[in-house]
């Protein structure tokens, strides 16, 4: 899908052709000229032009990806949408956030990934304990390459920059994605005990250290941790 665009009236740019734009904050419009995008299954709400929809097994990574996903339990049902025209995607009125990748890796919970350009590779990676706390499994989805990805969040996501001087603590239920060179570990050193004894031991946070961006949603999924 990458290549020099040669259509008249367009500058010659070395980038993928599918154009991602937001229609309001909850609908993603993708303008396509014969190319393809990968999108969460069932997330198409409308389209103009000619489109074909094809279900992909194993998150679009072929047989190997499928086996990996079976093993890792990171569920991702993806469809490939291909055609000419504009396709509109939305998912249960979630807010949509666009992320432009230029070679770096995006780590994202599979349920928060709406759509990626075909130029981007998706895979899975081991996340350690964080996944376990969310019941999402120990593995998270990675998106690599150059192109655009659309993330879902419950409420408008906040993007927070982590620097070596300013580490960040995040409620595990509010975390959706991150990029950059970040180390993450559980932080439970919170002095938290109520006089009735209820709700103790729930103060888990993920601490991010290093250099990168963390995407946080203003809402919390059901978690074991993070009752602060």
């Amino acid at each position: 899908m990458r290549g020099l665009s040669q259509r008249p009236g367009r500058s010659l740019t070395f980038r993928s052709v599918a154009q991602f734009r937001l229609q309001g904050s909850k609908v993603l419009a993708v303008d396509m000229t014969g190319d393809a995008v990968k999108a969460k299954n069932g997330s198409m709400v409308a389209y103009e032009g000619d489109m074909t929809f094809k279900k992909m097994t194993g998150g679009g990574d072929g047989l190997r990806g499928m086996v990996t996903r079976r093993l890792t339990g990171e569920q991702m049902t993806v469809m490939e949408v291909k055609g000419h025209g504009t396709c509109y995607f939305a998912d249960r009125a979630s807010e949509i956030n666009l992320v432009s990748l230029t070679g770096e890796t995006l780590y994202v919970e599979a349920s928060n990934l709406l759509c990626t350009e075909a130029t981007l590779r998706t895979g899975t990676s081991f996340t350690g304990l964080r996944g376990a706390s969310q019941g999402n499994g120990l593995f998270t989805t990675t998106v690599e390459g150059t192109g655009q990805a659309a993330l879902l969040s419950d409420g408008t996501a906040i993007v927070l920059r982590v620097t070596p001087q300013t580490p960040l603590s995040v409620d595990p239920g509010a975390y959706i994605a991150h990029t950059g060179r970040l180390r993450q570990h559980f932080q439970s050193g919170v002095n938290f005990r109520t006089f009735l004894g209820e709700g103790s031991g729930e103060a888990f946070q993920i601490r991010f250290e290093g250099d990168g961006l963390v995407y946080v949603q203003p809402s919390e999924r059901t978690t074991f941790g993070g009752d602060v």
């Binding site: 603590s169 409620d171 509010a174 005990r193 009752d227």
Partner: peptide, 20 residues
């Protein structure tokens, strides 16, 4: 804060249960 409403923080912050 009501429990469960903090989603992220920078800096040195400790959270204490109330009543002790």
């Amino acid at each position: 804060l009501q429990k469960g409403k903090m989603v992220a923080y920078f800096g040195q912050i400790a959270f204490h249960g109330i009543g002790h």
